[in-house]
Measured scan of single mutants.
Amino acid sequence: WEITFERNGKRITVRTTDHRLLELFEKLWRNGADERELERLAEEINR
């Protein structure tokens, strides 16, 4: 799966075969987690 999240013109794409990681990322994104931390998390998930 691949999903791109966008907020205030900032886009972060997450790619993984584990839908649970996408759900976790989406919850953090929707709850306003720090964008720098989300970028780092996305990099780890995308590996």
Rank of each mutant, 00 (worst) to 15 (best):
G9D: 04
G32H: 10
A33Y: 08
T13H: 05
E6L: 09
N31V: 05
R40V: 10
T13A: 03
E39N: 06
I45S: 02
R36I: 15
R36F: 15
E39S: 10
G9I: 00
A42C: 07
R40E: 11
F25N: 00
L38C: 02
L38N: 00
N8K: 05
K27D: 08
D18T: 04
R15L: 05
E26L: 15
L22G: 02
W29Y: 09
E6T: 10
R15K: 13
R15A: 06
R15N: 07
E23P: 02
A33Q: 05
F5G: 00
E26I: 15
L21S: 05
E26D: 07
G9R: 02
E44H: 13
T16W: 06
V14N: 00
L24K: 11
F5C: 06
K27L: 14
E6S: 08
H19T: 11
L41Q: 03
R47Y: 08
R15H: 06
L22M: 11
E44P: 01
E23A: 14
W29T: 01
L38Q: 01
E23V: 13
V14I: 15
E39T: 11
N46H: 06
G32T: 04
G9K: 03
I3C: 09
W1C: 10
L24V: 08
A33F: 07
R15F: 10
I12A: 01
G32N: 08
E35N: 08
R47G: 13
T16A: 10
E26T: 12
T16F: 13
R7Q: 05
W29R: 02
K27G: 06
T4I: 11
A42I: 10
D34I: 15
E23Q: 12
H19L: 15
K10Q: 10
D18Y: 04
T4E: 05
E23M: 15
E2G: 04
L41T: 03
R15V: 08
I45L: 06
L24H: 09
L24P: 00
L38I: 06
L28T: 05
K10G: 02
R11A: 12
K27Y: 15
A42L: 12
R36P: 09
E39Y: 10
R30H: 08
E37H: 05
K10F: 15
E39R: 07
V14C: 03
R20G: 09
E2Y: 09
E35R: 03
R11L: 13
R11C: 08
I12N: 00
N31R: 07
E43Y: 06
D34S: 13
I3R: 14
I45V: 04
F25P: 00
T17P: 06
W29F: 11
L38E: 01
R7Y: 13
N8M: 06
K27Q: 14
E35G: 06
E37C: 13
A42D: 01
G32F: 08
R7N: 05
T16Q: 01
F5T: 01
A33G: 09
R30M: 09
E2T: 06
R20E: 10
L38P: 00
V14M: 05
F25A: 01
I3N: 04
R20F: 12
E23I: 12
R40I: 12
G32E: 06
E2C: 12
L41H: 02
T13G: 01
L38Y: 03
L28N: 03
D18S: 11
E44R: 12
R30Q: 08
R15W: 07
L28C: 07
F25M: 04
A42V: 08
N46E: 07
E35Y: 15
R47A: 14
A33I: 08
A42M: 10
N8F: 04
F5W: 06
W29E: 01
L22T: 02
W1N: 06
I12Y: 14
R7A: 11
E44M: 14
R11K: 14
F25V: 02
H19I: 15
T16N: 04
I12E: 01
L38S: 01
R40Q: 13
F5S: 00
A42W: 07
R11P: 05
E35H: 13
K27V: 12
D34F: 15
W1Y: 12
I45C: 04
G32Q: 06
R47K: 14
E23D: 13
T17W: 11
R20T: 12
R47N: 14
L21K: 09
K27H: 12
F5D: 00
R11G: 05
E26P: 00
T4R: 03
W29N: 01
R20S: 12
R7D: 02
E39C: 08
L21F: 06
N46T: 07
A42H: 03
W1V: 10
R30N: 12
F25H: 00
L22H: 02
V14D: 00
L21Q: 09
E2R: 02
K27R: 13
A33K: 04
L22K: 05
E2N: 03
D18R: 04
R47D: 07
I45W: 05
L28I: 08
T17V: 07
E2A: 03
R30W: 08
R47V: 09
R40W: 09
W1Q: 05
L21Y: 06
F5I: 11
E26Q: 11
L28S: 06
F25S: 00
V14A: 01
H19D: 05
H19W: 15
V14L: 15
N46S: 09
K10E: 04
N8D: 11
I45F: 04
H19P: 13
N8A: 06
I12D: 00
W1L: 09
L22R: 05
L41S: 01
E39H: 08
L21I: 08
L41I: 09
W1F: 11
E43W: 05
A42T: 03
I3W: 13
T4P: 01
N31K: 10
E43Q: 12
D34H: 08
A42F: 07
F5A: 02
N46I: 09
I45P: 01
R7V: 15
I3V: 14
L38H: 00
N46P: 01
I45K: 01
R47M: 13
F5R: 03
F25I: 05
T4M: 07
E26M: 15
L28Y: 12
T16L: 07
A33C: 11
N46G: 05
T4V: 14
E35T: 12
L21T: 04
T16C: 03
G9E: 03
N46M: 09
E6D: 04
A42Q: 03
W29S: 02
T13C: 04
E43P: 01
I3A: 10
N31L: 09
L41W: 08
E44W: 15
R36N: 14
T17M: 13
R47T: 12
E26G: 03
R15D: 01
D34C: 05
E44C: 15
I3G: 04
I3Y: 14
I12C: 03
F25K: 00
R7H: 07
E6Y: 12
G9P: 00
G32V: 03
